[in-house]
Design a protein around this nucleic acid. Sequence first.
DNA 1: CTGGACATGTTATGATATATCATTTAGCTC
DNA 2: GAGCTAAATGATATATCATAACATGTCCAG
Lengths: 176, 176
Amino acid sequence: MIYHNMSSHQNDRPTPEETPLGFARHDHAKCVDQGLAAAEERSRAAGLRFTPVRRKVLEILLREHRAVGAYEILDNLREAGFASQPPVAYRALEFLVTQGFAHRIERLNAFIACASPGDDHAPAFLICRGCDSVAETHMRPSDGAFGAAARATGFQVERAVIEAEGLCPACAPEAS
Amino acid sequence: MIYHNMSSHQNDRPTPEETPLGFARHDHAKCVDQGLAAAEERSRAAGLRFTPVRRKVLEILLREHRAVGAYEILDNLREAGFASQPPVAYRALEFLVTQGFAHRIERLNAFIACASPGDDHAPAFLICRGCDSVAETHMRPSDGAFGAAARATGFQVERAVIEAEGLCPACAPEAS
DNA sequence: CTGGACATGTTATGATATATCATTTAGCTC
DNA sequence: GAGCTAAATGATATATCATAACATGTCCAG
């Protein structure tokens, strides 16, 4: 599954020109609502507390629809009347990442809402250096040459960070 | 090619017990010298300046034989009589990474000497959360499911970060 | 209604990284 | 080798990202 996050288009409906990739158009308000509802549902099912701060942080990530830094989230929290000390944001983010509702992008020191919460998760990201959009795709790191190398050494992979940097189809032509 | 960096054993010759994986024993002083010589040679061939600071930073990385943070490198530089402001280390590291003599480990915000400089490079790392050792292996990210997903969207991958976290064979048993 | 677990609020600080500008050095041309 | 240019380094300051530690508040099972 592929899900593209266009930072520069966050307030637009994607047009065919903007998403010439077959990325699905979507009703953004609806995808925010659905994301929140899914997280709420899954938290309840797991006996976890989907508190207001956690909800708000996930809402920000879903709304922004791109990789967002912790301090930017903090600004949003402040505006929304929440406390605005760093630990507030980092704790909420830790919860969301642990539960698989969001991911950390190591390359950017930033966070992004998960494109398919609920799946058994081995996310990989395509990061455009032109427009900072981030696309999420899933893969099993145990597959392929990488998994083979790990297995050959007896290394037990618990988590894999897979982040590709390059140019998305929209930015590639502009970079003459 | 696999190359394991054991932080906790940095002053020892690896013993069979410490490297039960088939990782090659090696003469560490020699591997430092060879790494420096290779970098010097390749810099000269490319018309680049392999200056004392750059050489010293690469020497530190080769000697430590593990992922090392920029500020730790800075401490080493100070002790060696070099300037010790952050930009000094970061600039040297940028050079080494750009030239492929070292890699940045995003997950650790740290740097490590390249295990096979000269190769056409798509490094992947196995990071042990038990002993902080880092093994480097190479792969072509264009292979497998990941490459397929990128190609399907028209995304041009320029660089890929592939970092697996887990337990190395030495640490797996201890984590009952 | 109370004890324990978890979550949040708050202060302080630690850790990582870069912008900027001054100065020095290396290599080039004449 | 004098003068020019580009690259590298030195140095100051500051930006950015992240967590330790402890106090306070909230939920809920017993």
